[in-house]
Structures are given as structure tokens and as C-alpha cells.
Design a binder for these strands. Structure first.
Lengths: 192, 192
DNA sequence: AGTAAAACTGAATAAATATTCATTTAATTT
DNA sequence: AAATTAAATGAATATTTATTCAGTTTTACT
């Protein structure tokens, strides 16, 4: 054998996400993870120095992946409104289809595994979003408000809705996304 | 001594909330709690059978307290709009001034300490909110949408905003509350 | 003050969990 | 196909954490 197996890291990550979704970050052990990933406990320590590093590595990975999907097809060909709607749509869909990722990230933020320094880096990944909102404010497409407030408004609505849908076992249909987007847009649009 | 000391339970709860706010639910031990509460570890077991019961008792207490404050002064003397704004205001203020309570509740929901049965009871505490929204929809004050969606929209905005404010060390001023409420209202109001 | 009951203490023990490592298995090289 | 190296195993060990309990202090009552 030549090198560490990427697919094993993948299996470990996937197992951890599954367990965190089911039991929460507070309720999982290295034994649980290895069992869920169908590997020996010792093998975890070949891929990660310890539990902290495993969780942190997964945290980093999840953040990278999320941000990547958020901005898919949000490009200059689209109007401001088009880009905003696309972004909104992407974020909802990603969070719905990858609920375990969202759940893990949310739980990690205020856990002993993740510290504030990491959080600062988050800003960069979401810079295009901040820029888009800034543009909207400057061109009077959206109300003249603190950019951060709009971001909180955006993620607040989406996070809560996705969480609710997940825990009540309901799918979020395209019609519902349209409806919520309308509410979101009415909330932020400029009206003199 | 005649009976167990209520103020000691209070101290234990307060200590736990402080620690969960700082380190997260995953990062606290019974030893940490007793130390923070300035009592011996053994004393914890006089008041609570074990860690699970401690956390669950605190969870129940926090939920009761929150719901109580949310509906303060939301009464029939007020117009529909007045009641809605008051409620919005109450929820924000409570969550700001008792951030550790909100943080603890949020983390508990998906922890091994709290199970789904408890969650069902939550519905009842928030019934007045559901009723208010239903009334709004029926009287065409707010858009004709799934009530649950409006609730998610409401809590989503507030939760995210309070979290952001707390972690960036900024106070939410009355002006900001007014601004966010305006956005919220524009999002849900009926417009043909 | 004297006494019994309740509350409190924190070191000792039990239980859970993380981590290591001697051994086995599989892959790669010569 | 033997030798070499990397990866995987899981029982053993170390560490952390929950829980208990024998002894101490405080309280409430006479």
C-alpha cells in the first residue's frame, strides 16, 4: 500500500456527520464513529491525531464545501435580482440536501472544538455575498441597512425553515421556496 | 435545615448556563459545574439524580421562562399590529438579555439529553403565537401562508440577529429593532 | 446548650472514553 | 514469490468524568 486512503477519510467524515445529526456533537465517541464507519478504532488515529483534529478537519471541510455550493451559477450574466434569487435558492437547496452538514456546522460553532480564530476566516468565504448586498444597497435595489443585518436576515430565515422542515419530515417544495423568497424580498427591497 | 435550598438550584442552573454559553454543551463536566457554582461535586447529586436530570430540568425551566416572557403585555387591548410588534419586541429583548438561555436551549434540542417527546410539548407554550398568526391570516392582515412558515420566519430572523449581535459584542438598539421589525412586517404583510 | 435531621464536602470508586501499540493483514517492490 | 513497507486491527492502557459515600458541618427545634 502506498498512501492513506482518501475514501476512508470520506467514510469517517460521513459517519461523523450521520452521528452528529442523530445524537448531537455532545453524544458521540471515537468508538461510535469507528463503528459507524465500519473500521477499527485505532484506524481513526492513522488518519487523525485525535478527536479534536478529526472534528476540526471536518469543520473546515464542511465550511469549504458549503460556501462553494452557495455561489454556484451566481454570475455576472444575471441581473441583481437574478443573482440574489439564485443565491437564496442555492443556500436553501444545499442546506436541505445536506442537512447533516448544516447541523454539524451549527453545533460546532459553539463547541469546545472550534475557536473564534476559525470563525474569522468564515468572513472570507462569504465575501461575495457581502459584496452582492453592498451593491444592492448602493444601487437602491434594497433598503439602506447595515449589510450584516441583511445577511442575518437571509440566513436566519433559511436556517430556521430548513431545520423545521427536516424535523417535521416535510420536503420544501419549489412553491414553498418561491413563497419564502417573496417574503424575504419584500423584507429587503427598497421602497423609498 | 428543613428543605433543599432553592437558591442552590438557582446557582447550579446559573453556573450551567454560563458554562454552556462559554464552552458549549459538549464541553462541560459535573466538576466544572460544581466549581462554577462554588459547591462540592457531591452536592449536585443532592439536587439532581444525575447529569441527565440536571440538564433536562434546566431545559424545562428555560423553556417555561422564555415562553412566559414572550407574551408579556401582549393583550387584547392592543390591535393586531400592536400585539405582533410587542411580541417581536419581547422575543428579541428576552433573547438578548438572556443569551445564555437561548444558547442552551438551541444546543439542547439536538443533544442526547433531550428527546422528541419533550419537543412536542413545546407547541403548547407557543400556542398563543400560532393563534395570533392564524388570526392575522384570516383577517387578511398578513399574507396567506402556512402558519408554521411565518413562525420559522419570525424566529429565524430573531435568532440569527441575536446570535450575531452577541458574538460581535454589539448591542441591539431600539432603532435596529425597529428596522428589523419593519423588514419582518414587510415580509409578512398582506398585499393583495 | 443539646440533639437529631438535613445538607454539604471532597476524596475514593466506578464507568465511560480516548489513545496506544503489539500483532496481523494487505499492498508494493525487487 | 520473498522481502519490505504501509495500513488496519482491537484488546490493553491511560485518561477523563460521573457518581458514591463516610465523615463533617449546618440548621431547626426543644
Amino acid at each position: 500500500m502506498r498512501c492513506k486512503d482518501v475514501s476512508k477519510v470520506e467514510a469517517i467524515f460521513r459517519a461523523t456527520l450521520t452521528l452528529v445529526k442523530e445524537r448531537g456533537l455532545a453524544g458521540i465517541t471515537m468508538g461510535d464513529i469507528s463503528k459507524e464507519a465500519s473500521i477499527a478504532t485505532g484506524t481513526l488515529y492513522i488518519y487523525f491525531k485525535n478527536k479534536d483534529e478529526l472534528i476540526r478537519a471536518l469543520f473546515t471541510e464542511c465550511r469549504k464545501q458549503s460556501a462553494h455550493y452557495y455561489f454556484e451559477n451566481v454570475n455576472e450574466q444575471l441581473s441583481f435580482e437574478g443573482r440574489m434569487e439564485r443565491l437564496f435558492h442555492n443556500i436553501i437547496c444545499y442546506k436541505m440536501n445536506n442537512f447533516e452538514v448544516s447541523a454539524f456546522l451549527e453545533q460546532s460553532y459553539h463547541s469546545p472544538y472550534v475557536d473564534v480564530i476559525d470563525l474569522k476566516k468564515k468572513q472570507k468565504a462569504l465575501n461575495p455575498l457581502f459584496d452582492l448586498i453592498k451593491e444592492g444597497v448602493e444601487t437602491r435595489k434594497i433598503r439602506n441597512t447595515e449589510v450584516q443585518l441583511i445577511v442575518s436576515y437571509l440566513f436566519g430565515i433559511i436556517n430556521e425553515m430548513v431545520k423545521k422542515a427536516y424535523f417535521s419530515n416535510k420536503k420544501i417544495t419549489e412553491a414553498v421556496i418561491k413563497e419564502v423568497y417573496a417574503m424575504f424580498w419584500n423584507g429587503i427591497k427598497y421602497d423609498g
